[in-house]
Design a protein around this nucleic acid. Structure first.
Lengths: 123, 123
DNA sequence: TTTAGATATGTTTTTGAAAACATATCCAGA
DNA sequence: TCTGGATATGTTTTCAAAAACATATCTAAA
């Protein structure tokens, strides 16, 4: 019997400084901006207000050596946003880091799950 | 010149289910209960209200096969709390998992830090 | 039998982050 | 030159999580 229930989700947040951090939210936002071509559309997909998405991008752009996202205003379609090379690099690095971390701790994760209550989600 | 500034902090949160998760906060709480011998004292050390600490312990006790923390009431000192064997096991497993994850992703972490802005904390 | 210091909970208040709302601005193309 | 759809921000409102406050309860030991 395959026991695929209870697959735990591994969330990583990297805190670089008091106001500089990166976690699952910003990563997903970058990803969606890459595929959508706009901050507004990415935000909509994530059920996030444009303003919030815009703010997150602002902090991301400020915390790295150069902007991860560049934007254009006006024109056909009204404008848009796209990842810079650095943006793509940071994103893929973060994703790879996630995988490495998960792989490195898989054994322990399995052991932890063993100790969980049998009746999960039973709140 | 040692460049120990900007040592990033790696935070891991494991989400087992919709209402079942464990992260740095619960881990530290377990640790301090172990060393303090009481929920109240542990909470004080963490600047956390007794009520909140007590609630966190409640959810922890509920999500594993057996309680991680047991408590006594009354008596000299008024009572106290201590980790069960399972509690100690979960805690050390979580700590080990953290280390494994950090070790597994250290290379990528280093690479990420390289891309950070030079002027950190400059908000 | 009183006390001390902890556990155990209910109730009210704060507050800080996110949402919601509101505009202003930009500009290629029709 | 008007328009559409996006960026860019300021302002107000909501709301849920945490804090704060308030008690009640337990019990070994003095």
């Amino acid at each position: 019997m395959s026991d695929d229930r209870n697959k735990p989700i591994f969330k990583i947040r990297i805190v670089f400084g008091p106001h500089e951090m990166m976690g699952p939210g910003k990563a997903e936002l970058l990803e969606r901006i890459d595929s959508c071509g706009s901050i507004a559309a990415a935000g909509r997909e994530m059920d996030m207000s444009y303003k919030r998405a815009w703010e997150l991008i602002g902090t991301l752009n400020a915390m790295f050596k150069a902007p991860l996202v560049e934007r254009t205003r006006g024109g056909p379609g009204g404008g848009g946003a796209f990842l810079t090379d650095l943006g793509r690099e940071v994103l893929s690095l973060y994703r790879a880091l996630e995988e490495d971390a998960a792989a490195g701790s898989a054994k322990r994760m399995q052991a932890l799950c063993t100790l969980l209550s049998d009746i999960p989600g039973e709140k």
